[in-house]
Amino acid sequence: MEKPPRVQLDRSAWIQAALDTLANEGVTGVRVEVLSKRLGVTKGSFYWHFKDRQDLLSAVLDTWKEGRIQDIVKQTHPDPSASPAQKIAQIHRVIDIYSTSRNRKGILIELAMREWARRDNATAAIVEEVDAWRLRCAREMFLGCGLPMHEASTRSMLLYAYVFGVSMMIYDRFDADVPRLKDDIRDMIAGGLST
């Protein structure tokens, strides 16, 4: 009888498995032996790609950071030739994208990262860097609409707090007209911008 082919994993498969585990169990659940069993490979496969558990955790942090920064830059990147109306429409689109997205796994990873950051200075620095990027990108959109720095900063903080908060809430029963509620909030964040 022929043996089944051995599973060949690359570094990214280990990182993805660690992110999945992080979402469900937090950083303490990210252990080499547990991941090996879940992936159906030996621990030797892990050590082919990583020096040790800390090397994996560093790769997880880098992957999360790069993904979050690339995403916000992609959504907020200004078009230099955009009209004022297009710049305002971009702000509305960003608000809509981030306030309607209900990626449960993404939310769980975000929460796990923040919990991890409470106990680990290196992780806290990464989370702070991601937050700074998100806020800076949002602020640049408001600055692009001609708002002064202080108001652009305030609106970017309000936008970020709204998007982050709504992603964690179960709010469907709070108000009978959720679409109107979201439109009102969007108008409060982006209202008064001139075209």
Score class of each variant (00 low, 15 high):
D172F: 05
S101P: 00
L57H: 06
I109K: 07
V73W: 07
A85E: 11
L147T: 05
D187G: 03
G40C: 09
V73M: 11
N24L: 05
C145W: 10
M113P: 08
V60M: 10
V41D: 01
E140I: 09
R186N: 09
L181C: 08
A89E: 13
A89C: 02
A18Q: 02
E110A: 13
L61R: 15
L9N: 07
V27I: 14
V166E: 13
T123I: 04
A124P: 02
D177G: 01
H92D: 15
D175G: 02
S99R: 09
R102V: 00
L19I: 11
W48K: 13
K3T: 13
A190H: 08
A112F: 11
F142S: 10
P80T: 00
V94R: 07
S58M: 09
S36L: 04
P5N: 10
L108D: 15
F164Q: 14
V163F: 08
Q86L: 04
T28A: 13
L22C: 08
M113Y: 11
E115H: 07
G29A: 05
I97Q: 07
M141T: 08
M141Y: 03
A17I: 02
I109H: 02
M149F: 12
A152T: 06
Q70H: 07
P179D: 05
P78S: 10
R118E: 13
F174K: 04
S156G: 05
L56H: 06
T42Q: 11
S83I: 00
L135R: 15
Y160H: 14
H92Y: 13
D175H: 09
M1K: 03
A124L: 08
T100W: 01
G44H: 11
T76W: 01
H49T: 01
D183C: 00
S153A: 11
A17C: 01
G165A: 11
M169T: 08
V30W: 03
R180I: 00
M157D: 13
G40S: 09
E115D: 14
P84L: 10
